[in-house]
Structures are given as C-alpha cells and as structure tokens.
Design a protein around this nucleic acid. Structure first.
Lengths: 193, 193
DNA sequence: AAAGTTAGTTAGTGTTTACTAACTTTTTAT
DNA sequence: ATAAAAAGTTAGTAAACACTAACTAACTTT
C-alpha cells in the first residue's frame, strides 16, 4: 500500500484527533475542519471512514516495522535486541500518544471486520517477533529455559501494555521512557539464567 | 448504591449487548428491544445512558470485590492468596465475557469523566491490592525481594491483561482458565525467592 | 373510594453521523 | 492554449442517536 501526500496529511490529522479525545473524536466533520477543507473533499482521497483508519494503522505499522527491523538486523545479542525493541517502542509511542489510543481501541474495531483483522495481525506479528527473540536468547544461554518462550513473551507484552496503560491513565503525564527503563530492569533480572 | 430488580435486569441486558458486539452495540434502542419494552421506559429506571454504564461497572465491581475479600480474609499465605485471586478473576471473566469488553473499553470512556473516574478507580484499587499482597509475600519470605513490589505488580497485571486479550482475540474460544493456570505457573517460578 | 405513585405507552424532537450528487476550480499533460 | 483529470465546493440526504412531552393503565396508600 502506497499513500499520496494528501492521504498522509489526512492520516496525520486523524491521529491527532484520536490523540486529543479518543477514537470517537474522529468524525468526518472534525477531520475536515482540521484539514481546513470540506467534508466531501475527504472522499476524494479515501473511499470511506474505515479506509482512513485502515490507512492510519498500516502507515504506522510500517514505521514501527522499519524501526524494529533495523534492530533485528544489528549485531547485538538477543537480550540486547529485546531491550532495544522495548526502548524503541516506548520512544515511538511517547512521540505519538495518539497511537496508543488506536491500539487500545481494538475493542471499538472488533466488529468492523476490516479493522479488527489489521489490529489482530499487528498484535500477532509483534508476539511472534518477541517469541523468536526470546528463543534466540535461550539458545545463546542468556535467558532462562525453565519457562517456555511463549510464556515469557506473555510477560514481556503484558509489562509493555500495563506500563503504557498507566501512562495513559495518568493523562500522559508520567515519564513513559523512565517507566520503560524500570520495566526493562525488572525483565532483565527475571529473565536472566 | 443500591439497585432495583428492574435496574439489575437492565444492567444484565446491557452486559449482554456489549458482550455480543462491543460497547457501541449498547444503544437505547437495542437495550429497549432486548428488554422488550419501549425506549422511554428505560428512563424511568436510569437518568441517562451514562448512568446505565455506571451501574454496570459498579454492580460488577461489587461482585468482584466480594469474591476477592473472601480470599483476602482466608488464612492462606500471600502467595496462595495471589494465586486464588488470579483464578477467581479468570473464572469470573470466563463467566462474564461481556465484562472484558467493558474493561477493555477504558479508551471509549476516557472522555466521559464520570465513567473514566470509575474505571480508573477500579484499576487503581486492583493494583494496590496486588502490591500489598506482594509485599506480604516478601515479608513472609516467599517472594523475591530484589525487585520491588510495584514492579512485580506490573508483571502480574500485565500477565493477566495479555492473557485476557489473547482470549478475546481468539473469539473467546481458547481456554481462559487453562491459560490462567499457565500464567500462574510462570509467575510462581519468576517470583520465588 | 379517592389520590397518588410507578412503570409503561405513542409520537416526536433536535442533533450528529457518514456519505452523495452536482457543480466549480485548479493542476497537469499534450 | 486547451482538454482532461484531480481536487475542491455547496447543498443536501437518510439513518441513527440520546432523549422528552404528554398520556395512561395498573397498583398502593390512606
């Protein structure tokens, strides 16, 4: 999927709207106002509202994917890679608080099949990546092997999610990066052989 | 807060509607249909829609609170109590899948101050309880003390949340209780001194 | 038996929603 | 320079939304 300039502008505006007041703040009216043109103009660029949200998800998925790929391709060991991925994600999210709102809105998307599929795919791939990193770490001898990779991945993902949730509930005022560091310290101790 | 019979029936119907198709499926129209009476009749029992959702949250909060209190009052040690609380929660949620949808909808409530306060309070109290249980366990010498209770609580809550999320994304078809058991096994190993 | 209360009804309001048809302006290609 | 395509406009639609006014049947209280 490739986006035009205008489409990216619209995706960006959508992200801002959601970041300001949640998914229900993303209406065609508000979006048009933010873009300072009229509502029908939006339909020149996206078939319907679902496609805008779909675009938002795909666009940022690509951004995150690129960041994560660089880390995976580096010559760090698995444990260091997990740390780097974690830090990258917290940094990306701190810069784009709106994304959290989107990710946390799986519920709202659940009965829009197009969107729920995308969200599911994102979460699924993320889990797979973490699992394989953990397995690498176990093979390298840096991560304990008395708990299987699947379970350890649950712990990692859970830690990330809870940390982000706390940040959101604090009104984005707590220091997400600092909390992320703390989380990593904990995970490192728990995971070491 | 005390509820009439009819209010509880309405709360129950709301829970079902949300469970079927998410929060956005809870409309006055659908609710009236499910109750098989007309829309205005609902307003004899609740001031507005927000109060219905509020009622739903409070009603189930009470149910969970009662269950958890029994566990806290028992003569188990802290580690056993954490295990019992975990299992109780997974069991309660397996029986009331709709509740998950509500809990996972914090985002949708975030900009309705009444509801966001309630959700926040629920999550906050839950965290506090887990933290104090962990501290008890640390004092009893059953839980490692090289990681502070706050961080360990993040891990517990994260594990719960991720497990429930996976279950939901599986369309409520995976075995939540079994996944809960696995989670506990993992936590037990990780937490032991 | 009269008066009041509770819990329902019918019929409707105003607002917001996503979206469209028809027209105009601007940009691009030849 | 002109034709075509792209990107905007105005004016509107139908459907969904939460909610209300006015009325009534059926109980309860006194």
């Amino acid at each position: 999927m490739i986006f035009t300039k205008r489409q990216i502008e619209i995706i960006d505006a959508s992200k801002d709207l959601i970041g300001e007041k949640g998914v229900q703040n993303l209406t065609i009216k508000n979006l048009a106002k933010k873009m300072s043109f009229t509502e029908p103009a939006l339909y020149r660029h996206f078939k319907d509202k679902t496609q805008i949200l779909n675009g938002l998800l795909l666009f940022h998925r690509k951004a995150i994917k690129n960041g994560v790929f660089k880390i995976l391709d580096s010559d760090k060991n698995a444990l260091e890679k997990i740390e780097a991925v974690l830090k990258f994600k917290f940094a990306h999210i701190e810069k784009n608080p709106a994304l959290v709102m989107v990710i946390f809105s799986e519920t709202s998307f659940q009965y829009c099949s197009v969107l729920s599929k995308v969200v599911r795919k994102i979460l699924d791939q993320r889990k797979k990546k973490i699992i394989s990193l953990i397995e690498n770490g176990q093979n390298e001898g840096n991560i304990r092997t008395d708990i299987n990779s699947q379970q350890l991945a649950t712990i990692v993902l859970g830690g990330i999610r809870t940390t982000i949730l706390s940040w959101r509930l604090s009104g984005f005022e707590s220091d997400l990066k600092a909390e992320g560091e703390k989380l990593w310290e904990t995970l490192e101790i728990l995971f070491k052989k």
